[in-house]
């Protein structure tokens, strides 16, 4: 009885007064009703759910003897149904319909979380972006169902082989982003190699000419980036992997294919340097 009194104010508003009145009546007249509220471990929820039932119906239910147990069943059922529906909606909003991997919305959230975590703990994490090579030609020549089948197959392998702490997300059509918490770049690279090989294996068994290009980098406490900036760095590496002949893994510091990927110091720059140098030698008597 005490417990019920304590929780009663939760529902105190408007029409709910009627509910309270009915309940008070139950408590007065029927021992059964009292009993069940005492057993109920979550009286608050009971009251809140009771609000969904029209006051009239509730009144009838409560008035009739022996029905209150049924009322409890009904509410619990409703609660469970709501919970289930709620979690279904939640997973719908965070996962990708085709592959069941996490979607882009989840990815954006999680990336921010991991960056905050790294800043707090000092432990680096890795982000890799995978883009399928020649995937468009599969869709164009063999149809979208074949392309979808391939995506579903690699997503299944991803789910089987992924380390339980990593997050695999479908970022776009044939782009996947994988967050690997508490992972250094060197470890990340060897994992990227494994994923690259896994995709190759799936393509081989499906007799498709598809490979993957991967960009990867580590986020550590020396890193001043915002989340979108860090993503852009990894994306740039992915672009480099594509540009340098596809089916490869690139990361900052990865040796350039053509060593002269930086431009020569131009004549204009040389002249500027020379002119900057002249007044120095004129002013000082110039040892050299």
């Amino acid at each position: 009885m005490k417990r019920l009194k304590k929780t009663a104010p939760v529902t105190a508003a408007g029409d709910k007064l009627a509910i309270r009145a009915s309940l008070a009546e139950i408590l007065k007249n029927q021992k059964g009703g009292f009993l069940f509220t005492e057993k109920c471990s979550q009286p608050e929820i009971f009251f809140l759910l009771a609000e969904d039932i029209p006051v009239g119906d509730l009144g009838i239910l409560l008035k009739e003897k022996g029905i209150k147990l049924k009322l409890q069943d009904d509410l619990l059922k409703k609660l469970l149904r709501l919970e289930k529906e709620n979690s279904r909606l939640k997973s719908l909003s965070l996962t990708d319909g085709l592959t069941n991997l996490y979607n882009r919305r989840f990815f954006t959230q999680q990336l921010k979380i991991e960056m905050t975590r790294t800043k707090r703990t000092g432990q680096p994490f890795c982000l890799m972006i995978i883009d399928l090579d020649n995937f468009k030609s599969v869709n164009d020549t063999l149809g979208h169902h074949k392309g979808d089948e391939f995506l579903v197959n690699i997503a299944r392998i991803f789910c089987q082989k992924i380390r339980p702490t990593d997050f695999a997300c479908r970022y776009g059509g044939d782009e996947f982003a994988i967050i690997m918490p508490a992972t250094s770049l060197l470890d990340g690279i060897s994992i990227a190699q494994r994923w690259h090989d896994m995709i190759e294996e799936v393509a081989r068994t499906m007799k498709l000419d598809v490979s993957s290009s991967i960009g990867i980098d580590e986020f550590n406490t020396f890193n001043p980036f915002r989340d979108d900036e860090f993503f852009a760095v990894v994306d740039k590496e992915l672009y480099r992997a594509k540009k340098e002949g596809k089916s490869k893994i690139c990361y900052p510091g990865y040796p350039q294919k053509e060593p002269s990927s930086s431009e020569e110091v131009s004549r204009e720059e040389k002249e500027a340097l020379f002119q900057a140098f002249m007044p120095l030698t004129n002013k000082k008597r110039g040892v050299n």
Binding site: L273, G286, V287
Partner: peptide, 19 residues
């Protein structure tokens, strides 16, 4: 204070920036 040290330093900065 040598001109070549200036140009080489600049080239180093440029390479590190571009690569």
């Amino acid at each position: 204070r040598e001109l070549t040290s200036l140009t080489d330093a600049y080239a180093m900065v440029k390479v590190m920036y571009q690569v």
